[in-house]
């Protein structure tokens, strides 16, 4: 009897030891998993409507350059990013917003009014007013962004 009780006590102690080990491991493990996957599980920043400026700045028929800055938060670092868009309208109601980044190697394109086209100085690419490639190496038209007008202000959906 005595012998049996000892074994039982030993068995119980052994079980308890493992149980405590398990508790402590879980105490480390579960927070550790949450800790590691935390930033990955965070929802991606949504695209925002970025205010560009007054509608009245856009000349009819001429792409107008708007510059704006957005803040981008990655980890503990906040970056300011400058975004530029060419906005043009034929009728003052429907607006088109084009990126000013050449789709070839990322140089800035600029609007050459005399020729009615965008010109990229890096490799002499030319884009039409609607962003289509006219000549040069770019693989696709200039990127377009959704654009809306509210209370006389222009907004572009971008960032994120």
């Amino acid at each position: 009897m005595n012998e049996k009780r000892t074994i039982d006590r030993r068995g119980f102690l052994g079980f308890m030891t493992w149980a405590i080990g398990g508790i402590i491991s879980a105490g480390f493990g579960i927070p550790a998993i949450a800790y590691i996957i935390g930033p990955a599980a965070r929802k991606e920043e949504e695209q925002n409507w970025i205010r560009l400026g007054s509608v009245s700045k856009v000349e009819l028929g001429t792409p107008t350059l708007f510059k704006t800055e957005i803040e981008r938060q990655t980890g503990w670092i906040t970056n300011k990013e400058e975004l530029s868009f060419y906005v043009f309208t034929e009728n003052g109601r429907d607006f088109v917003a084009l990126s000013n980044i050449c789709t070839h190697l990322g140089c800035r394109v600029r609007w050459i009014a005399d020729q009615g086209q965008f010109f990229c100085p890096c490799h002499n690419a030319a884009f039409a007013k609607n962003g289509e490639v006219i000549s040069g190496p770019p693989p696709r038209p200039l990127d377009q962004y959704p654009v809306k007008e509210e209370d006389g202000q222009l907004f572009v959906l971008g960032g994120g």
């Binding site: 927070p31 550790a32 949450a34 800790y35 935390g38 930033p39 503990w76």
Partner: peptide, 8 residues
Amino acid sequence: QIPMGWLI
């Protein structure tokens, strides 16, 4: 910012 970061 990190979940459980305060605990770790």
